[in-house]
Design a protein around this nucleic acid. Sequence first.
RNA 1: CGGGCUAUAGCGCAGUCUGGUAGCGCGUUCGUCUGGGGGACGAGAGGUCGUGAGUUCAAAUCUCGCUAGCCCGACCA
Length: 444
Amino acid sequence: MYLTKYFLPILKENPSEAQITSHRLMLRSGMIKQSSAGIYSWLPLGLKVLKKIEQIVIEEQVAAGHIPILMPTIQPADLWKESGRLNDYGSEMLRIEDRHGRGMLYGPTNEELVTDIFRSHITSYKDLPKTLFHIQWKFRDEVRPRFGVMRGREFFMKDGYSFDMDRESAIHSYNRHMISYLRTYERLGLQAIPMKADTGPIGGDYSHEFLVLAETGESEVFYDKKVTDSSLGERKIDYSDKQGIAAIVESFTQPYARTDETHDQNLFNKLPPERRLSARGIEVGQIFYFGTKYSESMNAEIVLPDGKRTFVEMGSHGIGVSRLVGALIEANHDDLGIIWPTPVAPFLAVIINLKHGDKKTEKVCEKIYENLVSAGLDVLYDDRDERVGVKFATMDLIGIPWQIIVGPRDLSEGFIELKFRKDGKRTRISFSDCSSELLNALRV
RNA sequence: CGGGCUAUAGCGCAGUCUGGUAGCGCGUUCGUCUGGGGGACGAGAGGUCGUGAGUUCAAAUCUCGCUAGCCCGACCA
């Protein structure tokens, strides 16, 4: 993409409404524009990041055997009457009336809809287990939206719903989700710690929130140092291996890790002092096994092998996709701007022409651009007539991982320069060799 | 929903107390110089001062209402 042909409305100064880093940087780098409180338009750069996160989430869900669907944003109020949540949900739910006077609502979540889909089509244990998920816009009419996309009213969320014939199978579904979430966060370049969550009136051990550690996090978290030392890494996951999956889940959830809501100081104090850590965290996902709460109220039954009927066991699982954009920035930035982890970067690299109007540098930039694009890489070419300082400042701000710097000085000696945004390290690369050496470097 | 604050050019702000020709920086347009970390000079464009009413010869400025946004708290993916 040639920058002069793109739409990248960056701001040099901080918008006064943005208080926290990610919100400020998202506005300054032209990723979003506020439309009203807690509701945003996603501009090209922001949309690219959002879609990259979405794609990774989808891939990991599909890898875990979960099935994508798409449910509507507008839902009929009748279904919510059935579950009893029409009254319970309160004014956080945006209620709408259509022209016929029918009660509608902008969905804050989808348990009712998905249960309705399930009960219409699945009646036998033979069709189980199944997990349906979708990634869709939700709306919660927060009293006080803030922190940009981290706590907007409209938000983009992956929510999945598992259906199982019995508790044992449902727990395996729960564990499967745990692993698929851990993998998702790792691929995004984030460390998210599963923390025991409040299960409310339903009770039980089966709810975890996933927290990313960041200074600006909204909750205080307490954890055993062990949890930040563990990662899935490259290991192969066999989602059909119940024991294996359960063992991995155990290894991640056994060490102490809780938010201030469920924190137990006495338990925490049993850890050796050097392993007791506390920090702030941003919640980026939650998984929940709630049994038959909705299947009972909405009458979603299945027939078991012995011919008896039973209510289907359910769980729901969410990842805040739009919130993750903010969380990623909170976890990856410096004074100059954003530092995107490569997997979610809006562009892998940017070619910076240091001397606009110089035929030779322009030609080299264009050649590099063509090479990289034809190699399948998504690169930006800063072909603006701007001073170098402006170009560097812009690119540092929007956080593209690699800067390919082309200027007459180095070029006269046959070199171009490659700078890594994260550590600022620069490498000189022979221009004659740039198609192979550069490609290798970018594919690290 | 309780408490606090704000609204003047695309963005950041001054002007409001003490009513009298609407200003600064950045950005933007044109030109010249410049060219390895937000450059210089010159010339422009751009605002019914959030909105409605009132007071006054005269309102960005004073009074009242309304709306929107932000912050702290309670609440939440």
